[in-house]
Amino acid sequence: MSTTQQVLELLTHTNDPLSGQDIANQLGLSRTAVWKAIKSLQTAGYKIDSRPRVGYQLYDSGNLSEALIRKYLPTTFLYPIEIHKTIDSTNIRAKQLGNQANIATPYIVIADQQTAGYGRYGRNFVSPSGTGIYISILLNNSRFDFDPGLLTTAVSLAITRTIEKKLNATAQIKWVNDVIVDEKKICGILTEGISDLETQSLTKIVVGAGINYLTTTFPIEIEKRAGSLRKYALQAHVSRNEFIANYLIEFFNLYKNYFDGTFMDEYRQHSNIIGHKVTISQGEKTLTGTVTAINDKGALVLADGTILSSGEVTKIRPL
């Protein structure tokens, strides 16, 4: 670990100011080495308050940082975290990692900006820097009965839980996985698989999420239906680092047993379409019906008995 990283780690896990001499003593460094490390961190964007006769104190300025994310995570959380300033897509990166023979999973990829972010059906996902949360989790798969719909619903619930616990905002879920706040979509989720060509088996899974966290503007074509958590995040003083950490906690709590569907009652409580007449698009086909339930596999149940495990709700009619 570099000197700069050592100093960052120490400041991250200390709530009170530390003098240069304290840092030097604890890490076995010279005062000059400490000073150079502090300047390097400040240049890199870390907010470190420096007060004479008081010391140095690190604050979460909102810049994405593995050290700060881990500050909000339990010490038992040891999965690797990779952060990029700019990347084409966190899902693409996670899939690249998934094709490496000895990559450890779960593996988390986070970006401050995506230049080629995408969602369901290959749609472009606008991913500006400094405002959004773009995160993908690479998972190993040993289940022959893997259900992507059930995992996707678990992801949407993990994000919903995080919003309600950390930001004190009410969130709803539009089937399958659109998270809605103030009647606008604030999050997109995409689950993808990596297959072994020889065995024809699904070996790894990538679950990606793009969250409009501090976003202020959207392209004209989506501005009427896209929303942001900015108001709630600023009111609650919750940084992207803290939100990401809490999402990871919620996700892995659900992921342990997601395949048994025991969380579906909670998912249904957050659904904004049960009891509503909806229009659903499935490729070239369009269906209309009243939603009577969402079953324990995450499938939509219509009043005429139709069961849909995939599709997109394009219109919801008021009750």
Rank of each mutant, 00 (worst) to 15 (best):
L68C: 00
I69H: 08
S195Q: 12
R161S: 01
K95M: 08
T199M: 02
T262P: 11
E221Q: 10
K85I: 14
D60V: 02
A245Q: 02
R120I: 09
G210M: 04
K85Y: 11
D296G: 08
E82P: 11
G132F: 09
G289Y: 00
Q6H: 04
I189S: 04
I274K: 01
G122I: 07
A33H: 05
V181T: 05
G289S: 01
F125N: 13
F252M: 02
Y107D: 06
G149W: 13
K285D: 15
T12G: 09
E284R: 13
C187S: 12
T306W: 02
S310V: 11
G210C: 01
G149T: 14
V301Y: 12
T160C: 09
L41W: 03
F259A: 12
T43P: 12
P318M: 15
A171L: 03
G62K: 10
E66M: 00
S201H: 13
A111C: 01
E221F: 14
C187P: 04
T43G: 14
E242D: 05
D145N: 12
P74D: 10
Y121D: 14
L18Q: 05
Y121G: 13
S61Q: 11
A33F: 06
Y59I: 12
G227Y: 05
V206R: 04
K297P: 04
I92V: 15
S50K: 15
F259Y: 15
I108N: 14
I274W: 09
H237N: 14
L287P: 06
S309G: 14
G98F: 03
L190G: 13
D49H: 13
V238L: 10
V313L: 14
Q42I: 07
T170Y: 08
R240G: 02
N257I: 10
V278F: 11
S65P: 07
R31T: 15
Q57I: 11
G311E: 07
T217A: 07
I108P: 12
N140W: 03
T76H: 05
I110A: 04
V181G: 08
S228Q: 07
N63P: 12
E223N: 13
D147S: 01
N295M: 01
D182N: 13
E82V: 15
G193Y: 08
Q200V: 15
S239F: 00
Q282M: 12
I194R: 03
V313G: 08
A245M: 04
Q5Y: 08
A101N: 15
A104Y: 11
K224T: 15
F252T: 01
I163H: 01
K39N: 14
D49V: 14
N141A: 06
L300R: 15
I294P: 12
A299S: 12
V109A: 06
N246K: 08
A116Y: 13
D260G: 06
E198D: 10
G132T: 11
L73Y: 01
Y247I: 07
G62T: 09
D196S: 04
G275C: 03
L302H: 00
S40Y: 10
E312K: 10
T199C: 06
V238H: 01
